[in-house]
Design a protein around this nucleic acid. Structure first.
Length: 480
RNA sequence: CGGGGCGUAGCGCAGCCUGGUAGCGCACCUGCCUUGGGCGCAGGGGGUCCGCGGUUCAAAUCCGCGCGCCCCGACCA
């Protein structure tokens, strides 16, 4: 038995994560381009599933896709003061093109609010033009100091929705509706429970009035922001002069929103479900839900097994691993590392008995089922796995969430937590939304993740720092 | 940018201290044999030893300079 190529979670969670990504053939570091990664077919297929899940829901809520330029005139970024301050350190700038120094440099988009502002100003004249509901699937670049595959890379893939509305009320509705879409995809498709809530003023998007997020908990107890939605108010409308005439004939600035989710979701997926044997994919995001490994010794067995295997696999929509020169054992390990939800084994014994072996990836449980019933059992098993993965993750979230009523308490809970060692918790505390308070939390490298939309605890209480009354507890955690 | 580490076959490493034929494991190729959880045997291919300069009869090895990457901290979807 060969040694496992995957570092156990207990030993070093960060190393485990890297190993799972590599052994699952999801992605690899680009090496020639600092901080970037190559998303390999196995990883990209998962991204395509997530894209589809999100895109279908965007369309269902009335949005249309567009594409905007990668390059943004540098002056655009400067038009919104908070926005430029927030993004300036992360910008990659093109200063030369066509062999000449450019009169005005272009920045490679870190996000597209500014360029959207420009075009909204051009397109929107009347309240009859509103709302504008668009989305773009794109790559963006943010010059990060520290990168981890899928979780934070210099270049990443995402979608960014941008909308314009005639009233603040409608914009807020849109912001919250899209947050719900993210939560639904996370929970129903990815089987990843999340906490919806508002970001504090200190943590909001640079240029937003208010930001919202869904926060997921990874197996090491660290938080992962898995999607954000922003109420931009009239900030970009004013910066880019996006004005429209109301039905009363007056001029007003539009109310905008933006919302995004990225390939980071894949990192969240991995750190929510995978184990020491490798990737575990919930059936709904698994590009390949079942794989059949044929087993045989002699040539006549081979013919019999392959014939039956091909038939069954067709009925099941499963892939048959026909590779020569590999033992069944090697194939089992291969598909296990790649997270395939169900692996079937079919050998001479099964051909004779009319059975087939069905093994689920998440629990490792094997079941011998009659071939005649396998299609139905397979479909049912996929549903069970999807449900069980969610339940397990939800339970973990509950188990690792604690209440605290003083700063010292929070500190002692989170002090020694790191991505490598784990031990993270979501600590629920009463805390006033004030940047000075966020700063206190940051001193021990934790942060306020969000202020939950739904209060599942004890309602109002006194802020642990200022004593002021706040209406509910916030989530404090160490985060990616 | 500060602190630490590392660059030798596709990957993981040994060799360097004490200069003298460039090696091991995995992967890869060929053949035989095997196949219910990482088969075995035999044969084989593959190298600017990160780069430049210096010392020397001779440098992967010693010296100097440079480059790149990783980890830890300050920034972040």
């Amino acid at each position: 038995m060969a040694e496992s190529p995957i570092t156990p979670r207990e030993k070093d969670f960060a190393a485990w994560y890297q190993d799972v990504v590599l052994q699952g053939d999801m992605a690899e570091p680009a090496e020639i381009v600092k901080g970037c990664m190559v998303i390999k077919p196995n990883g990209y297929a998962v991204w395509e599933v997530l894209q589809r899940a999100l895109d279908d829901r965007f369309k269902a809520t009335g949005h249309q896709n567009i594409y905007l330029p990668l390059l943004i005139p540098q002056s655009f970024l400067k038009k919104e003061a908070e926005h430029v301050a927030g993004f300036a350190p992360e910008l990659a700038v093109v200063t030369m093109a066509g062999g000449k120094v450019l009169e005005e440099p272009y920045v490679i988009r870190p996000t597209s609010e500014t360029i959207v502002g420009h075009f909204f100003a051009k397109w929107i004249k009347s309240y009859r033009d509103l709302p504008v509901l668009i989305n773009q699937w794109a790559n963006v670049v943010r010059w990060e100091l520290r990168t981890r595959m899928f979780l934070r890379t210099t270049e990443f893939l995402w979608q960014e929705g941008h909308t314009a509305h005639s009233s603040h009320e409608e914009a807020v509705q849109e912001t919250l509706r899209m947050l719900d879409v993210y939560a639904e995809v996370a929970e129903d498709v990815m089987a990843m429970p999340v906490i919806k809530g508002a970001k504090t003023q200190a943590e909001k998007f640079a240029g937003a009035l208010r930001s919202y997020s869904i926060e997921a908990m990874m197996q090491n107890g660290l938080a992962l922001q898995a999607g954000t939605s922003h109420d931009l108010g009239q900030n970009f409308g004013k910066a880019f002069n996006v004005q429209f005439q109301t039905n009363e004939g007056k001029l007003d600035f539009v109310w905008q929103t933006s919302w995004g989710a990225s390939t980071r979701l894949i990192g969240g997926l991995i750190m929510t479900h995978s184990d020491d044997k490798g990737l575990v994919l919930p059936p709904k995001v698994a590009p390949q839900k079942g794989v059949l490994v044929p087993i045989f010794r002699k040539d006549e067995e081979r013919a019999q097994v392959m014939e039956r295997a091909t038939q069954l696999a067709r009925d099941l929509g499963a892939h048959v691993d026909t590779r020569d020169g590999l033992t069944p054992g090697a194939k089992f390990f291969h598909w296990e590392r790649r997270g395939v939800p169900v692996v079937f084994e079919l050998g001479p014994r099964d051909v004779t008995s009319g059975n087939i072996v069905m093994k689920r990836r998440d629990t490792g449980t094997k079941e011998v089922v009659p071939q005649a019933e396998v299609a139905g059992k397979f479909a049912a098993l996929l549903e069970t796995i999807q449900k069980d993965l969610y339940t397990r993750a939800k339970q973990r979230l509950k188990d690792k969430t604690v209440l605290a009523n003083s700063l010292d308490e929070v500190k002692s809970i989170l002090n020694d937590v790191t991505a490598e060692k784990g031990g993270g918790k979501f600590v629920m505390v009463h805390l006033k939304d004030d940047p000075q308070n966020d700063a206190k939390i940051k001193e021990f490298k934790a942060s306020v993740r969000n202020i939950p939309s739904v209060d599942e605890y004890d309602g109002a209480g006194k802020c642990i720092l200022t004593g002021e009354t706040v209406d509910r507890r916030v989530v404090i955690a160490k985060a990616y």
